[in-house]
């Protein structure tokens, strides 16, 4: 079964690649430093990658639902949710639950707003979520104008602490990705999202509730971004308006490098971790080599383009 083998390879290869690349970059860095700081590098890679993975999971589901679907409101959502979370928690341990609940509520609202713009006003997702992000950013500026509020002690410890070098956060996010994996392959919602991404008309005719799937997907993405926002605020000792900025490109990059098809309908959860580790380790490797910020950015861009080009060079299974 030649075709079958080919299919299996296509299915399994993408996420292996991203882990392999991450491993190579890690080794290269350690060779350069002669093995110094291996533990610290690994630990910080896990922490920072965890944030990439949280937003990546949401973006992955959005991209899965097919061409044209993308969530560009993630950075603004992170800024707003960080500010809302810190304000609600008010540096007090017993308000943590309230803060997290409030932030999740923000996520649901943002997701519904994005979907409403797309569905009711028939605006393409790329423009709808981008314009929504201007609104969110403005609200975040107005709302977070007051002085920087520190996170509650307990929340700060959770966000920054680790057990034997493995950050709590990384453990939690690994559990979250396991959940996302099950959601994608073993639930009605996940199968429907994959079907919609492959052929939206066929999905509708097969009985899939297409609009419900799209709504749930945008809400899911926004909730994950909000969660990332509050954790990031806890991690960095308070919310700032620009803390989400790097997550726009990162959320898309980890999805694509992780082996998810940009054309939709085929997604890869473990690949998110490989890609996130790779992206972080790449930047720290270039730092170790003493490369300037400009070189780092250029290389990151070149690598993303190269991965997309390599993936689309693969014989496409889609006829249209």
């Amino acid at each position: 079964m030649n075709l079958n083998l080919h299919f299996d390879r296509v299915r399994s290869k993408p996420w292996l690649w991203s882990f392999l690349a991450a491993l190579l970059v890690w080794l290269a860095t350690l060779v350069f430093t002669r093995g110094e700081g291996a533990g610290a590098l690994t630990s910080s890679a896990l922490s920072f990658s965890a944030f990439f993975v949280i937003v990546g999971v949401g973006q992955m589901f959005v991209i899965t639902t097919g061409p044209g679907n993308i969530d560009l409101s993630i950075p603004a959502n992170i800024a707003l949710s960080g500010a809302v979370g810190m304000k609600l928690m008010d540096s007090q341990n017993d308000l943590i639950v309230l803060g997290v609940a409030g932030v999740l509520g923000v996520g649901v609202l943002v997701g519904c707003a994005n979907y409403a713009l797309i569905r009711v006003l028939r605006i393409p997702p790329i423009i709808a979520t981008l314009s929504a992000s201007f609104l969110l950013q403005s609200v975040a500026i107005a709302y977070g104008r007051s002085v920087r509020i520190a996170p509650p002690e307990l929340f700060y410890q959770f966000s920054t602490g680790n057990v034997m070098g493995v950050p709590y956060l990384a453990v939690a996010v690994v559990l979250l990705t396991v959940f996302a994996g099950y959601l994608l392959s073993r639930t009605l919602y996940g199968r429907w999202a994959l079907a919609v991404g492959q052929n939206i008309r066929a999905a509708e005719l097969a009985g899939v509730r297409v609009e419900r799937v799209r709504w749930a997907t945008y809400v899911l993405s926004a909730v994950f971004a909000s969660l990332c926002g509050v954790l990031l605020a806890g991690f960095s000792g308070g919310a700032s308006l620009s803390m989400g900025d790097e997550y726009l490109l990162a959320s898309i990059a980890v999805v694509v490098i992780g082996g998810t098809s940009v054309a939709g309908g085929f997604s890869n959860v473990p690949g998110l971790w490989g890609a996130a580790l790779f992206l972080y380790l790449l930047v720290s490797m270039l730092n170790t080599f003493g490369a300037s910020a400009g070189v780092r950015l250029i290389l990151t861009g070149v690598i993303i383009i190269a991965v997309i080009a390599a993936v689309s060079g693969r014989k496409s299974l889609r006829s249209l």
Partner: peptide, 8 residues
């Protein structure tokens, strides 16, 4: 192709 199968 248009209304039926999921290619992937």
């Amino acid at each position: 192709q248009t209304d039926g199968i999921f290619n992937l």
